[in-house]
């Protein structure tokens, strides 16, 4: 008995560094965010050293702020469009590429996974090189009309960059989960001479439904909190056309020094993400399929 108690004490001792660092960098800021959103905390400007508890007035101010309403809409639009394109495109690619030969497959893997493996800063650098209005690759070609992409088509450009960066890991998830589908399903489908659309409907979809849900939720979470790409490509411009919530909060905090108000905007973003985390938590299991029992609707259609 004595030894057991000693053992658990050592266990806590071993966990101590992680507790320390996580509470300092993760828990404390998360709880402090709630407190900060109810104050007029500022590190410079008029409210510096004039900390007042303002309770919910930041939230009321936020809901009557048309700029915030605008950025909320843009955030949702951005997240939904990028997720829809990423998930459908990578699903189609993962299915189509299976039929190609080995060398072509590797070529596609390299191109698709590039955005995920390369550092974000280099991806952004390359994207600016593609779309720059004067020196960009598109500007130098003759068959695409020269436009200033970052001001005329800012939203489209930002979405393209986000998709290019994020599609890799979603594609990778689909490839691994399709590899996990038992071969007899495909053999049966071959025997029934199903075409691609029937195969998608009856074989792929029931088998990897769980992964599709997970990637949808992950993609939405990723799109909602996207910050660096938009910040460095358009910085919210032109006017407020690409100003997502995280960028709105960043500008409030670090340009106008209103930390309290910026944190309030981020709290709304956090609540949006928590709403998505609940179903994600429930459906995270399908990564590993249970047992050897075949399942799915294909069973019934055969």
């Amino acid at each position: 008995m004595k030894r057991l108690r000693k053992k658990t004490a050592t266990g806590t001792l071993f966990q101590l560094p992680s507790y320390l660092i996580l509470s300092l960098i993760v828990f404390l800021p998360s709880f402090w965010a709630i407190f900060m959103s109810m104050t007029n905390y500022a590190i410079a400007g008029a409210n510096y050293n004039n900390l007042q508890f303002t309770f919910l007035s930041n939230y009321f101010r936020l809901f009557t702020d048309p700029e915030f309403g605008n950025s909320l809409l843009i955030t949702l639009e951005f997240a939904i469009i990028t997720t829809a394109v990423e998930v459908s495109l990578s699903l189609i690619l993962a299915i189509v590429i299976r039929g190609l030969n080995r060398i072509l497959q590797y070529l596609y893997y390299v191109v698709i996974l590039a955005g995920t493996i390369l550092p974000l800063s280099v991806s952004i650098y390359m994207f600016i090189n593609v779309f720059h209005f004067k020196y960009g690759i598109l500007a130098q070609t003759s068959f695409i009309p020269a436009v200033d992409w970052f001001s005329s088509y800012a939203f489209l450009t930002v979405i393209l960059c986000e998709i290019w960066v994020n599609i890799g890991w979603i594609f990778f998830l689909y490839v691994t989960s399709i590899d996990g589908v038992p071969l007899q399903y495909f053999e049966l489908a071959e025997l029934d001479s199903l075409d691609l659309i029937q195969k998608i409907k009856n074989v792929y979809f029931p088998q990897i439904k769980g992964v599709i849900i997970v990637t949808l939720l992950f993609g939405l979470i990723n799109g909602l909190q996207s910050f660096m790409i938009i910040m460095s490509l358009t910085n919210g411009g032109p006017r407020n056309l690409t100003e997502v919530i995280s960028l709105f909060a960043y500008k409030q905090a670090f340009k106008l020094f209103d930390f309290g108000y910026g944190t309030t905007a981020n709290m709304i973003l956090f609540l949006l993400i928590v709403v998505l985390l609940v179903p994600l938590n429930r459906s995270i299991n399908p990564f590993g399929r249970k047992g050897g029992e075949p399942r799915g609707e294909y069973q019934e259609t055969v």
Partner: peptide, 14 residues
């Protein structure tokens, strides 16, 4: 699952 961009401001403060 904690998104970094939502706790950016308090982390900077700390």
């Amino acid at each position: 699952f904690l998104p970094f961009s939502t706790v950016m401001i308090p982390i900077y403060a700390i």
